[in-house]
Amino acid sequence: MSTSEINLTGSSADAAEDAYTLSLDAPRSRTRTKKTPRSTRGNFEMAAWLFMRLSGIVLVVLVLGHLLIQLVLDGGVSKIGFAFVAGRWASPFWQVWDLAMLWLAMLHGANGLRTVINDYAERVNTRLWLKGLLYTATVFTILLGTLVIFTFDPNIR
């Protein structure tokens, strides 16, 4: 940038720099050289896309059912207490329900945020940090939740 005022045909690295200094749209350079692309059947992006659709459908049932039980039926939110939770988690059915909801909701949300970061964070470092933060928070929450569901002790003092 110091030598030339404007670099119109440069590489994308120069271009990204230009975009910030010139407030012009960055030049796009595609470095797609291989004529025949490698087989990408069943790649991660496709799996992620499918997961979003399928987990979304399952979550509609899980979350709406959860909200109905917690907030509407049997006196609504006022009934929720330690005893209520302990009573529910005594049954493996509700353990599995809550576990599935935790995993699906966390992965669904994390994947959604991952695409948002991919789409909106332009600098490589920003992406790296945001995604690192996201993955750490996701793994922590999932592990903590799973631990609690499996090791819950109703007789805790």
Partner: peptide, 17 residues
């Protein structure tokens, strides 16, 4: 099939929102 593989790329159709 070949064209589908090209669009199955990381920057292919799955980036459509």
């Amino acid at each position: 099939e070949q064209r589908l593989e090209i669009l199955n790329d990381r920057d292919g159709v799955w980036r459509c929102r």
